[in-house]
Structures are given as C-alpha cells and as structure tokens.
Nucleic acid binder design. Sequence first.
DNA 1: AGTTCCCTGAGG
DNA 2: CCTCAGGGAACT
Length: 273
Amino acid sequence: MPELPEVETVRRGLEPRLVGRRISRVDVRMAKMVRPGVEKFCRNLPGLTIRKLGRKGKLLLWDLDSHLVGVHLKMTGRFDFNPVGTEPLKHSHVIIGFEDTDYELHYNDTRQFGWLHLLRAAELETFPPWAGLGPDALTVSEDRFVELLAGRRGRLKPLMLNQAFVAGMGNIYVDEALFRAGLHPLTPADKLTEADGRRLHRAMHDVLELALRHGGSSISDYRDAEGNLGYFQTRHQVYGKTDQPCPRCGAVIERMILGGRASCYCPCCQAER
DNA sequence: AGTTCCCTGAGG
DNA sequence: CCTCAGGGAACT
C-alpha cells in the first residue's frame, strides 16, 4: 500500500545513504524482482554512482548518470539498510552493496509484486511505467487539475486511482480525499462544477501533505527506509471505517466494491448525485 | 467498464 | 478451510 506519501517518505529515507554512493555489488535472490533480467541488472549496476533520487507518483527513480533504476514498491515492497553481510530475511530478494560503506541495502517484498527496473537514461521517455503517468498528485497545480478533470468522463473513484490521470493516489488517499471534498465515489466526473473540482484538488493536496508530515500510513507492513512506522492511519476518517460513525456527521460509514476495490464513504456527507 | 491474475499473510 | 488486502497489467 505505499501510496504517494509513503513512497516520498521512503525516498527521503534513502537519499542520505544512497546519493553519492558507488555500487560495488548486486545480489539478486529472486530473478523476477529485477528487470529487464538478472544478467543485465547485475552486469551494469556495479561501478555506477547514484546521483539523485527522484519520484513521480508512486515510482521511485534512481539517477545514475548513464542509467536509471525505476522502483515500484507495489503493495509490500520495502527497503532496509543492514550491516554488510547480514543474513537476508525470507523475503529479501535483492541486495545492493556500496564502496566504502559498512551497510548494504536490502529490497524486501513479501508479496513479490514490486520490481526494480534498470534502463539507460535515454530510454526514460519511452519507459511505459514512467511515460504513462499523469502529473504528480502532490505538485499538480489547482488550475491544471481542474483543466484535466474537465475533459474526463467516468466515476470519480476509478478516475482518481488512474495513474495516467494523476499519479500517486491509491485506495486509502482517494477515499480520504473524496470524503474531505464531500464527493461520492460514484459521481461522474463530468457532473462536477468547477468549484467541486477545486475542492477535490484541495482535498487531495491537503490529505497527501498531512500524511507526508506523519510519515505516511502504516497498514499491514509499511515501513520507511529506517524501519519506522507511519502514523497517519490514526487520522483516517473513512478508509477502513465501515460501519463506524462518520467523524463529521455521525452517519454510518458504508462500503462498496468499485472496480474490484473497496470504497468507504459517508452516505450523508458524500451524497450521491 | 468489469474481472482476473500475480502473491503471501492475517484473520475468521 | 475460506476471504480479504490491493497496484497495475491483461484480459473479456
């Protein structure tokens, strides 16, 4: 469940210990976690220096001059720093070592949905997970968001989850943002007024910003690169609150399945239209 | 636009 | 044993 605030928290945790480091060795313990294949991954990375750590939506981008490594944590991807030679955990699938450091980086992923993708710098524009992303949900301007929203049909919940529309929102923050904006998940995007769109942008931005300040939400096994839990989950207002009273009006929070995903909302504050 | 799949672990 | 969790691709 890392969504934008969790991925950004991870990025900030990795930055001080990765930037400026030259990779000395790579150990891939589960082949499918790396792309475009173990051989290329292990042959090309050693000797490269990490210059910058970027992020767009939920995608992490390591800049190594000639190459990039794109990382998607998906549901359960996690990074840990450990002393060199630490016995990997059961689900530690990739280990990266650096010159002149006493720690190494372990990529751990219980459900094996995530990946690390090595590409040449010139390939970024045609790298599908990057090229297909809409603007970053945290930094997109209100005017741009309203503009993008105006051309859209379809219901708000799946639209907000669509990374090509806006990058970084997942199930938790979409539910929280729709609640804050007072909009029902089934509302067709083309039924929104401009004021609704501006309110939705504000709700999205505010909830992401607030979650980031709390180190993200720890549902199941999210940890940042230092092993810290986030604590924004204590501030969730509707996500996971089925059958509990709405914090604003006291009505019972409802749950529906939409596009295969659970959606929690207040039937009173988020009236259908 | 909805469904299935990838995968493991938690909870009933 | 079963269901659920869900990001995103690949289907129908």
